[in-house]
């Protein structure tokens, strides 16, 4: 009789634990439920930057490659007071990122004094403003065979989420150091701008064209 009572109590306990587990699962799945392959109502798909009328002349396109390297064994060190460092294992990832930067000039910055025409309308002098980044971006698609992703111990594995975050960080790093890259390609930007503007102006009938940039 006593045994039957104990068994009954145990069964109730097991059922209780099972019920808690089920409730936990249901609330989790409710939180993430989304329509399959849906194209949701674009409420958040708004224009982030203002619609902008541009007058930018692109003269040079620079392709840059960068390796996004993430290695927790180098960046994370155990500290008793910091719970985030209480971990077992490491995460490492290497992803190549292709970045395109287009340099050029904002034609609105071209003032009246920057264009001088001779009295006989045969020669012209043009002074271009300082070059700047007109457009930039990184490759949306990438070959996952080129990605190295390792996670050891209890660390969560590296998937698309982390990879995309690393790619964006690598892109931001390059754009942040935009001046360094510009210094390396400055002569090309200037040379291309001179060639482009010269051919444009010559097609209007000017014979003698001088183009300089404000860098000098």
């Amino acid at each position: 009789m006593e045994n039957k009572e104990r068994l009954g109590k145990l069964l109730v306990l097991v059922l209780l634990v099972g019920a808690i587990w089920m409730v936990e699962r249901c609330t989790d799945s409710e939180a993430v439920a989304q329509p399959e392959e849906s194209t949701p109502v674009p409420t958040s798909a708004d224009i982030l930057g203002l619609l902008k009328e541009e007058t930018d002349l692109v003269t040079t396109e620079v392709k840059i490659s960068k390796l996004a390297i993430y290695d927790t064994s180098k960046s994370e060190h155990f500290r008793f007071t910091d719970i985030s460092t209480w971990k077992y294992g490491d995460r490492k990832c290497i992803i190549p990122v292709e970045i395109t930067v287009k340099y050029g000039y904002n034609l609105k910055e071209l003032s009246v004094n920057d264009v001088k025409i001779s009295d006989d309308s045969t020669s012209v002098y043009v002074m271009l403003p300082k070059p700047k980044i007109i457009d930039s971006g990184y490759n949306l698609y990438y070959d996952r065979k080129q990605v190295v992703a390792i996670s050891t111990g209890l660390r969560s594995s590296i998937g698309h989420e982390t990879e995309e975050e690393l790619r964006k960080k690598a892109y931001d790093q390059v754009i942040k150091k935009g001046d360094d890259i510009k210094r390396n390609v400055e002569s090309d930007i200037e040379k291309n701008a001179v060639t482009l503007v010269e051919s444009m102006v010559k097609s209007l009938g000017f014979k003698d064209v001088t183009v300089v940039t404000k860098n000098k």
Binding site: I47, V58, T60, K63, S65, K66, A68, G104, Q173
Partner: peptide, 23 residues
Amino acid sequence: LEDTSAIIESVRPKGELYIYSLV
């Protein structure tokens, strides 16, 4: 991220006029 260097793969001349943009 580790501080790796960016490598310039190519520099190409372009002749484009950007006339309208949005993000």
